[in-house]
Amino acid sequence: MSAWDRFLKTFFNTEVMAKYLPDILQGMVVTIELALLIVVSGIGAGLVLALIRSLAIRPVNWLIIFVVDLFRSLPPLVIIVLIYFGLPAAGISASAFVSTWLSLSLVLMSFAEEIFWAGITSISRGQWEAARSTGLSFGQTLFNVILPQALRLTVAPLTNRTIAITKGTALGTVVALHEILGMASSAVSNSYNPSPLMMAAAAYLVLFLPVVVGARWIEARFAWKR
């Protein structure tokens, strides 16, 4: 057997691959569900926090900044482990799925809040003043004048951050979540063959490559001249 054949048999073993393909596909479903949930709840919560922050209520803003800085400094893996093993101690038990979803949502929320906030504050004071001088309320100004401009600025950093964090769904393996990587690792230990890892890599590419390409397109579209 040539070295090349040995390589193929080890890393692209068709028998093993066929056997574990259903597992990997099942893992993909979990990863997709989880990623979509994280994107919706993380970005949604981040936007809500940024809007609350714009009300400039001091103690509330201190709290927001504290929470946001906390979740931006902790490694996501640590948060997942803390929630999965820590919550039961507080009498709440969270499944591996819920723990991973909650953890990564909190992380995305925190980064998204900072990105939205940076967008909002980058809009000049003159925009606020012009709008308010015509009688628009604070909220009307925020939603009609400030946010539409701010959101355009946030598209690029937000897409990049969202991709980075949703890839973190792979961290769910440490709490035995049956997403792509988790399925692949157990397949590897059961078959004594690393081919499932190759399938996992392919699965991630299939899922995230279109997202990365799409992000490029979105960025180009929203980079409009002022």
Partner: peptide, 20 residues
């Protein structure tokens, strides 16, 4: 105040039009 400001137009040095 929002109602009152309708009666007072203001024009700024830097125009401050909404660019979008």
């Amino acid at each position: 105040i929002n109602h009152a400001r309708q009666h007072i137009g203001m024009v700024f040095q830097s125009f401050n039009l909404y660019p979008h």
